[in-house]
């Protein structure tokens, strides 16, 4: 069996596809120590919190447990409001599995304090968005909130 043979024989290679036997596993992601409190504030109070690092002069949003730059433990929590600006955006024309979407939608990186929240833009025609546009978080009604990023329905223009 010379190495060269593989070029000629490759053509009849079969493959095995487990199909429905693909194993049904899933992952559970806890919000973590900082995430727990961050989402608690969104869920209960409709507020967005950040954690400032006084050594580095950075306010992280979403709030974090530690500063990645100096490794300080961040104990101070500040309400950073629910307004921010569009730092960047994209117009999405395809679904996750690469099918065309019925109508394009907007995904934005919203800058709040020194952090970025990736979220949908709502109440905003695709052609009207611009970088630097002020936006505000639109929360779901309190009783529908579960303690997750989906508690914010979308960000909308101010």
């Amino acid at each position: 069996m010379a190495i060269l043979e593989r070029i000629y024989r490759n053509i009849d290679n079969r493959y095995w596809n487990p199909g429905v036997k693909a194993f049904p596993v899933k992952n559970r992601y806890t919000a973590g120590v900082a995430g727990q409190r961050f989402f608690e504030e969104i869920k209960e109070n409709g507020k967005i919190y950040g954690t400032p690092c006084k050594n580095c002069g950075v306010t992280f949003v979403p709030a974090r447990m530690y500063c990645e730059r100096c490794f300080a433990r961040l104990d101070k929590w500040v309400d950073v409001g629910t307004e921010g600006t569009v730092f960047s955006f994209t117009v999405v024309h395809k679904t996750k599995s690469n099918e065309p979407k019925e109508s394009p939608s907007l995904i934005a990186a919203v800058k709040i304090a020194d952090g970025l929240l990736i979220h949908r833009l709502g109440k905003c025609p695709v052609d009207d968005v611009w970088i630097g546009m002020p936006v505000k978080a639109a929360f779901k009604p309190k009783k529908e909130r579960r303690g997750g990023i989906e508690d914010i329905k979308y960000f909308k223009p101010l």
Binding site: P24, V25, K26, N27, R28, Y29, T30, A31, G35, Q36, F39, E40, K43, R146, G147, G148
Partner: peptide
């Protein structure tokens, strides 16, 4: 009371 998401 503990927030998490699940995905597969």
């Amino acid at each position: 009371k503990i927030f998490y998401t699940e995905d597969s």
